[in-house]
Design a protein around this nucleic acid. Sequence first.
DNA 1: TATTGTTATACTCTATAACTATA
DNA 2: TATAGTTATAGAGTATAACAATA
Lengths: 158, 158
Amino acid sequence: MDLEARGHSEHPEALRLWLRLLTCTQLVEKQVRSQLREQFDTTLPRFDLMAQLQRNPDGLKMNELSRRMMVTGGNVTGITDQLVAEGLVERVAVEGDRRAYRVRLTPHGCTQFDDMARAHEAWIVTAFEGLSLREVESLHKLLGKVKQHYHATEKEQA
Amino acid sequence: MDLEARGHSEHPEALRLWLRLLTCTQLVEKQVRSQLREQFDTTLPRFDLMAQLQRNPDGLKMNELSRRMMVTGGNVTGITDQLVAEGLVERVAVEGDRRAYRVRLTPHGCTQFDDMARAHEAWIVTAFEGLSLREVESLHKLLGKVKQHYHATEKEQA
DNA sequence: TATTGTTATACTCTATAACTATA
DNA sequence: TATAGTTATAGAGTATAACAATA
């Protein structure tokens, strides 16, 4: 694997950083996807959706899920349909707006998600065990700046 | 967007880092994909393949491309077929092994890739302009440790 | 037998746009 | 009219496995 063979330019620092960021993310993501598949017969978007719901026990509306997962509404409908069919999440009516639903984990979904989350955390801890706690926090902080800058420029565009 | 709403656990640092890493990568990647689509009518895997070839002017064999791009061989065949059809890359025989090809950029492919690479670099510079040069290098170095650790454990498994 | 690369297949994820129902 | 959500469609990307040709 050598995604980082890509860049050569006059401002190579940002480019090198990007290629390395992409490489690292892909390494971890590939492993998470394959473990989710092997151990729990599920996918990353499904895991993500359930994770959002775990953090919001009262449930989230479809458009909230769409925004948080950074995908369009149709996709959320599809993933939600699968999870409903398996009894892991449910749609509940929102009172006062008969157009909207609130999606939330079922008790069974909670239980199952807890298992996955435990395993998931172990994979992630392993992925970053080459770093000290200080380094983990430093990385987190630096990436926070990247994210923040993105949100700032996003507002400019809008 | 709030991928980072996901984790809560007893070792939350690594998890928080991972979610932020994923968020940042997705933010940049989404933008790169859509710009490649809009401005050059191409995709990230196609761009990646051409980038690998630019760094290796003598060309790369299919299995080398597969390894470097972290995808299976069948996919590389598909992407290569597209690029050959558009005259951007070509397959040349490897002497001494009639099973293998070497894929390399055509002159037209070189020219076209240079245009894309210039635009691509500008997008990336913008994405990270919230960081100082020191911070960019620090981030690069920390991610290097993550990558290195991954490679080390990969060898253990093999 | 092992390796290089291709083909065939199936599935997930995605965006877009048209649509229904409600506000 | 605008909004919440769904449906339909098409396309990209991926892995798997069977296959042909060569080593």
